[in-house]
Nucleic acid binder design. Structure first.
Length: 284
DNA sequence: CACCATGTTCCTTG
DNA sequence: CCAAGGAACATGGT
């Protein structure tokens, strides 16, 4: 469930629940989920430490832990990949099929579940250094974004997925931001004029901000025990079945009318991934 | 069986 | 060294 808004909503839900909890025991069921950290190192290092905070950078979660004996900070990096989920589960509840890492916190256990195992929970925090600017913390267009676009002939859609120009956008919100900015996903990045870049940056921030606030007001089910799965952009509330339809303007809406102009939304493939756009609204 | 899926990284080619 | 394109990773849904 992972783009910036979903990760941020998860962070808000999780932070209070794990703060000050001590990791009594560590169980690793999938060594791959820790890469490149080894199981032995991970278990030895994390066991006995205490959660002191949870922050986010792009789509990454940064767990702040403290080694009890030495009081030294111990950062843990989490990424949900395509199908990762993190939540607390009562101690003796049955474990999900794809539980990758389980941290015993006493009354509850912290579960990192990941069906496809593309995500990770690791001691290696180096990926953070390669990330571009944080969209919600930069009201003005950052230089990295501006210059990154100017020296690429790739399509603007592809560049939005490159985490070094702006951190946190994924396939859904890249399409949504371009629709909002009224820019064609096929535009070569270097062809964007300053005015268009400014409009795009603003749209990115608006789309992400709305998604975060939307996710924050929804009674999410991160525990994985209910019927809905916590993937809030697809989750439909029983009391508001059209919720999802109204939230995403173009993503996964191929063949349906544009909510702004009525033109049929089209799907196209860029870099092996689907892009959705309105040919009427996004001519340039 | 086919194709699709919210992501990143590695390998090749130019 | 860089940019760009594509496959790989792994599982499940339709």
């Amino acid at each position: 469930m992972p783009e910036l808004p979903e990760v941020e909503v998860l962070r808000r839900h999780l932070e209070g629940a794990i703060r000050d909890k001590v990791v009594r025991k560590v169980e690793v069921r999938r060594a791959r989920s820790l890469r490149p950290t080894s199981v032995g190192t991970f278990v030895r290092t994390v066991a006995g430490s205490k959660f002191t905070g949870l922050s986010r950078r792009g789509k990454y979660l940064l767990f702040s832990l403290q080694v009890t004996a030495t009081k030294k900070p111990l950062p843990l990096l989490g990424h949900l990949g395509m199908s990762g989920r993190m939540y607390l589960l009562p101690k003796r509840a049955p474990l999900p099929k794809h539980a990758a890492v389980i941290l015993d916190l006493g009354k509850h256990q912290f579960i990192f579940e990941d069906t496809r195992y593309f995500g990770r929970l690791t001691l290696d925090t180096s990926p953070i250094a390669r990330l571009g600017p944080e969209p919600l913390e930069n009201a003005r267009v950052p230089t990295d974004f501006d210059e990154g676009l100017s020296r690429s002939k790739q399509s603007i859609k592809m560049k939005l997925l490159d985490q070094t120009l702006v951190a946190g956008l994924g396939n859904i919100y890249a399409s949504e931001a371009l629709f909002r900015a009224k820019l064609s996903p096929r535009l070569p990045a270097s062809q964007l004029k300053p005015e268009q870049i400014a409009r795009l940056w603003k749209s990115i921030r608006q789309v992400l901000t709305e998604a975060v606030s939307c996710g924050s007001t929804v009674p999410l089910n991160f525990s994985g025990t209910g019927k809905r799965d916590g993937l809030f952009y697809f989750g439909r509330l029983p009391e508001a079945p059209d919720f999802y339809e109204e939230r995403l303007q173009v993503y996964d809406r191929a063949g349906k009318p544009c909510l702004r102009c009525g033109t049929t939304i089209q799907r196209l493939v860029q870099g092996n991934r689907s892009t959705y756009f309105c040919p009427g609204c996004q001519k340039q």
